[in-house]
Design a protein around this nucleic acid. Structure first.
Length: 103
DNA sequence: AGTAAGGCGGGCA
DNA sequence: GTGCCCGCCTTAC
């Protein structure tokens, strides 16, 4: 069973368009908890569904990949498959690909 | 039921 | 660019 928090998170992640990425902070901010970025990551860690919800499109606020329950390697692979290249553990042209949640 | 530890981060020094 | 400390949720003891 998913917690309320997780539902919010997953729901918001689903909004992220293909080929773009978002950050834990932005995501946390979107659900009204700007200080819960880590908690967001924690929620994704349970990750009930790998490709169902684009949790792989979520990266750190500084453009770095962050982690991935299935392995960062896999994460990079999925992103690359969507056209998002990773260079040296960092998203290429990160800020341009960053999807910002509208309020 | 209460308390303590962990985890895919963020911000500041 | 690196290191340290903080805050937030979930799960285990």
């Amino acid at each position: 069973m998913l917690t309320q928090f997780e539902k919010e998170v997953l729901k918001n992640i689903a909004k992220v368009p293909l080929g773009k990425v978002t950050t834990y902070k932005d995501l946390a901010c979107a659900i009204g908890r700007p200080r819960s970025a880590r908690a967001v990551g924690n929620a994704l860690n349970k990750n009930p569904d790998a490709p169902t919800v684009p949790c792989h499109r979520v990266v750190k606020s500084d453009g770095r990949l962050g982690g991935y329950a299935w392995g960062v390697k896999k994460k990079i692979g999925l992103l690359k498959d969507e056209g998002v290249l990773i260079k040296n553990g960092r998203v290429v042209d990160f800020e341009n690909r960053l999807y910002i949640f509208k309020k």
